[in-house]
Design a binder for these strands. Structure first.
Lengths: 333, 333
DNA sequence: GTTCGCAGTCGATGATACCGAGTGCTAACG
DNA sequence: CGTTAGCACTCGGTATCATCGACTGCGAAC
């Protein structure tokens, strides 16, 4: 446990370092709120904090930098997620006021909103497909041997698969197949429906078979779409070009980021710092996540990826506000 | 016009600079194929090339770097797009052998393929929506006051819009609206259909009205989806972090890149170097593009964005091969 | 026209000195 | 006994300077 002054000193160092990216010297925070002692006293406490692992000294005669443990303490001892600036709050309000229509587009835009707010990279994970209930199935012919299977799910997601038919098939046959597939799938989850045993005349129908088969593919891996944006903000946040490249490469492998975010939420965390992420390229990064809920059910995740010296209060405020508003907006209808 | 030796020297300088990113000195290319003179002779020619604007000298006693004009000459005097390595060719074959199913997914994967091949950022622009013919329209209810309009287009694209209904509407009404919308839209292009005048009982139907209205929105701006990948490759290609950030920001504004690519194709170009792009942040970049065709009709564009010192033969080969194979694959069905 | 030889240029590298921000420690202070 | 003032010390950053080496440009020789 840290005594009050040390706590304030640590807090001040973290804030200062987040703002300046420069090692923080004792004299810089001697007058910080809750401190107000001489720099010599601060030095003593900083040495102790260093010893206890909250701060780190790049070299003997330089200021201190927060360690992972230091950041962790900082976020654990924030009172509340911090307040958004008026401009940001206004931006969010404006966004949700005019947000309309299509789920995908809305999530894509939410991702942009979040990256604009934070200036870091934003990730939005859509509702998983396989748990939603099928509302409608239809097979549409595109050309004699090509058809498109379209399934509308209860959460507004549309699953589609191209079917390459072996024999020419006319519209009547496709319509018949649509009816049969509807009987099998509608009302089921996509997952259950795709695995259903089919008997009777439907089992003979080439289109029905192809359709069910195509739905099985990907249904396991499918975790909901991922919308990333604001990667250009990462270039500002780091100074080494190699580091930027590593993080970008990670973001390109969407499943890594998605499983990281899911893992964090499972552990009940909303912030992961450096090695807490478990991903080596993110050693100097931090992630802030929040689930969003539709009608009380958590269905997806939004998050922000930035440097370890992230503006945590701001990022937490942005993420939590946006996730709440997004959930509310999606629950409305 | 350049005499043969100067041409060979210029060619050698460009190749060397592309490979090493270092200014090229006269002695490095004295033994290059088609040159084989002493370094002094090379120096004379390089001075001339410098004077004529093909090469540039960062400072008095350094090697030469190609100018934009030099790169331009180089790509204009390539014989053919260059050959792909065996590994790359194999990678493309493997990809199109197992590529299956859904258009969107396929374009997304094509983008990844292209960035893997070139190590630069790849952009794939899908077929525009508004020119395709509507094959099927359906309205599916999601909740009492929320419905989803799904339109399947002839090119396999699925357009969808969320309809927020004013009054509770049951499935029968939605089905009726589906039928009416089908009568209006099927067989038309999306653009024409959305603008059609509606008369008779359909004009009274709230769902029909909402549906048509929702289709009008975005139909103008809509140029086909954009799939970007391989942005991490940009981090390797440039050394200044600020430059990477600028290019990333540009890529995030997809319409800028799309209109650039479209513009290039209109001008009949397949390569744009530096200021030829007309975009200031791309001053030290180059873009290689190619259209892909379905049944002889150009419907979309693929391209690669990298540094001005791009491996043009390789990039041209990759882009042209992939565009050809992609078109063939999409024409197959 | 080509090549050789050579003086000259200029960035890169490394040594050296210096500055200054910042520390740790000791002694004085209240 | 916690706090502070004072001070010696450390060490990265910057500037200066010399050296090195990769080049060039040019005049003279081939």
């Amino acid at each position: 446990m840290l005594d009050e002054r040390k706590a304030n000193i640590l807090k001040a160092v973290v804030k200062e370092y987040i703002a300046t990216a420069q090692p923080v010297g004792s004299s810089h925070i001697a007058n910080a709120p809750g401190v107000n002692v001489s720099s010599a006293t601060v030095r003593n406490d900083m040495a102790a904090l260093d010893h206890e692992g909250y701060l780190h000294q790049p070299h003997t005669s330089s200021g201190r930098i927060p360690t992972e443990k230091g950041y962790r303490w900082f976020v654990d001892h924030l009172n509340g997620p911090g307040a958004l600036g008026a401009a940001e709050a206004q931006q969010i309000r404006a966004f949700f006021a005019k947000a309309h229509g299509e789920l995908e587009q809305m999530l894509r835009d939410t991702s942009k909103l979040l990256s604009n707010l934070t200036r870091y990279a934003a990730v939005v994970v859509g509702p998983p497909h396989k748990e939603a209930i099928v509302r409608s199935v239809q097979v549409v012919g595109l050309s004699p041997r090509l058809a498109l299977l379209v399934a509308v799910l209860s959460n507004g997601v549309v699953e589609k698969r191209t079917l390459e038919l072996v024999s020419d098939t006319d519209d009547a046959a496709l319509t018949a197949a649509s009816v049969r597939l509807s009987e099998i799938l509608v009302g089921q989850t996509l997952e259950a429906g795709a695995r259903a045993e089919v008997t009777g005349p439907a089992a003979q129908d080439e289109v029905v078979q192809l359709g069910l088969e195509s739905l099985k593919v990907d249904v396991d891996a499918d975790d909901g779409e991922v919308y990333t944006s604001g990667t250009s903000g990462l270039a500002q946040a780091f100074d080494a070009v190699a580091q930027v490249g590593e993080v970008l490469r990670l973001l390109e492998q969407q499943y890594v980021v998605v499983s990281l975010m899911k893992d964090l939420l499972d552990r009940g965390l909303s912030v992961a710092i450096g090695t807490e992420t478990g991903l080596e390229p993110l050693a100097e990064c931090a992630v802030v996540v929040a689930p969003y809920q539709i009608d009380g059910e958590p269905v997806g995740t939004i998050g922000v990826l930035g440097p370890a010296r992230m503006d945590y209060p701001q990022a937490l405020a942005a993420v939590s506000t946006v996730s709440r508003r997004l959930g509310a907006r999606l629950s409305e209808a």
